[in-house]
Design a protein around this nucleic acid. Structure first.
Length: 299
DNA sequence: GAATCGTGGGA
DNA sequence: TTCCCAAGATT
């Protein structure tokens, strides 16, 4: 087998340009704000579930300042059942910061982006690269898996490490636009071909230079992360409670929340408290509960 | 570094 | 049915 002489990017960039899924936030004319919203929505949430809410979101709040002016309750209802509703609250806060401190312009600088609520290592670089064309490594779970296999010959990526950024930076072309496309291509490959379980190696454009393939696709010998439990967890209870409030037209009595989880009153109470602490719920003077800002009580 | 934080679809 | 997991951030 002759060693390939082209770089990974020289294969993946054209592959991406030919094969990339037509996702709404990738279309020409998408604003940096649209990219930012998509990245927040896509955190731990499948693409298929994000497409419609994203469209509706951008139509309703086409600029950060528009969303910034909305009550948090509206934001949480628009977020709907995307999951992890604290993301919605943080996006709200980020929009307010962008409107107030950055002239309603989504920053292009990684450090400035990382200073915004809910924007961490990945999202800051994704916005810098995909919305502003900056040449920065964008490392998500897909990219780490692709690099683990193609470069390091390991079946899984294992825990995230600081080193990941440098690994990916080394794969990026010098050209800014190509670099951003390369990052998108690595993510796309990980999302559609080099997937977690049952990778479709027969469809892989870089199969002939994949270290994992070359080694005979050895099994993962690192630590196995324990399966996430769900039934009966605080997360489930919090979800139920918030679902009641989202579905109600306004504030609700405590009894309405009691009905959402009768299995364990102490757990229900603890979860309601945590929602209050998180700012996802607030209690009115009359004792009822509501989504934040719903009763017109600003700040 | 590990735990926590929603939701729903596919194998 | 049960289990896995999907473009992370925060503490």
């Amino acid at each position: 087998m002759a060693a390939p002489t082209s770089t990974l990017a020289e294969v993946l960039v054209p592959w991406f340009r030919a094969q990339a899924r037509d996702l709404p936030w990738r279309r020409p004319g998408t604003t940096a704000w649209g990219v930012l919203v998509s990245e927040i929505m896509l955190q731990q949430t499948p693409v298929a579930r994000v497409e419609e809410p994203w469209r509706a979101w951008l139509e309703r709040w086409p600029r950060p300042s528009a969303m910034a002016a909305a009550p948090a309750a509206d934001v949480l209802r628009a977020w709907g059942k995307l999951g992890y509703p604290r993301r919605a609250l943080r996006l709200h806060a980020a929009a307010q910061a962008i409107a107030a401190e950055h002239g309603d312009i989504v920053p292009a600088d990684v450090e400035t982006l990382e200073a915004l609520p809910g924007i961490g290592t990945y999202t800051a670089r994704a916005v810098a690269a995909f919305a502003h064309g900056r040449r920065v490594p964008v490392v998500d779970t897909n990219v780490r898996r692709v690099v683990a296999r193609a470069v390091h010959g390991r079946a899984e990526a294992g825990a995230a490490a600081t080193r990941d950024l440098a690994d990916v930076d080394a794969l990026l072309p010098v050209d800014e636009t190509d670099a951003a496309t390369m990052s998108a291509a690595l993510m796309e490959l990980g999302a559609t071909v080099c997937i977690a379980r049952g990778p479709r190696c027969a469809d892989c454009p870089v199969l002939d230079r994949c270290a994992w393939q070359r080694l005979g696709r050895p099994a993962w010998d690192g630590p196995v992360r324990r399966a996430q439990t769900w039934a009966g967890t605080d997360r489930q209870v919090r979800g139920r409670l918030l679902d009641v409030l989202r579905g109600a037209p306004g504030p609700v009595a405590a009894e309405a929340l009691d009905a959402a989880w009768r299995t364990d009153a102490a757990q229900r109470s603890r979860c309601l408290d945590s929602l209050l602490v998180d700012g996802l719920v607030e209690q009115l003077a009359d004792g009822r509960f509501a989504l934040p800002g719903e009763a017109g009580d600003v700040g």
